[in-house]
Amino acid sequence: MSPHLVDIRLTVNGEPVNERVEARKTLVDFLRDDLGLTGSHIGCEHGVCGACTVRVDGVVVRGCLMLAAQCDGARVETIEGVSDTGEIADLQEAFEKRNALQCGYCTPGMLLTAQELLARGGVPDRSAIREHLAGNYCRCTGYHAIVDAVESVAETRSKG
């Protein structure tokens, strides 16, 4: 086998996946092109915009700054997976209700990043929400509505 090809076994949204990938293929390209999971978007391809955000082994990462080859043995979750499980159904509903998305390009990354903050529990103040989302660009909404949505979910969830 060419040294430029790597065999990987991982789970993606709970499903086992075995693939042979080019070493240079980034995780987000692998998800989109090889697995057809196009919910993870590609913006800048150098770590700045956050459109490619996915979860690897429980934490959010830049899909453009990790290689698929590095995901051997990993547990990868994408926006498709967390939508199907219902984990962020309340957050998605709040985004819709508060107009926290327009074109939707940033939304999968925003949702996954916000969920990481919300999963810590409690009600973060607005500046903590802004700080946590600072690595995710949105060119449409002006962020205010996104912060509103995340804050409202934090409040609802903390009431149990």
């Binding site: 240079r24 150098h46 770590g47 830049r62 453009c64 700054l65 990790m66 080859a69």
Partner: peptide, 23 residues
């Protein structure tokens, strides 16, 4: 961590023959 290296590779600022992953 790749958070600087892979960004520079994506921009083709360098072209290594082999990446040695120490993770």
């Amino acid at each position: 961590g790749g958070q600087s290296l892979i960004a520079t590779l994506n921009m083709r600022l360098s072209s290594p023959s082999l990446l040695v992953d120490i993770n």
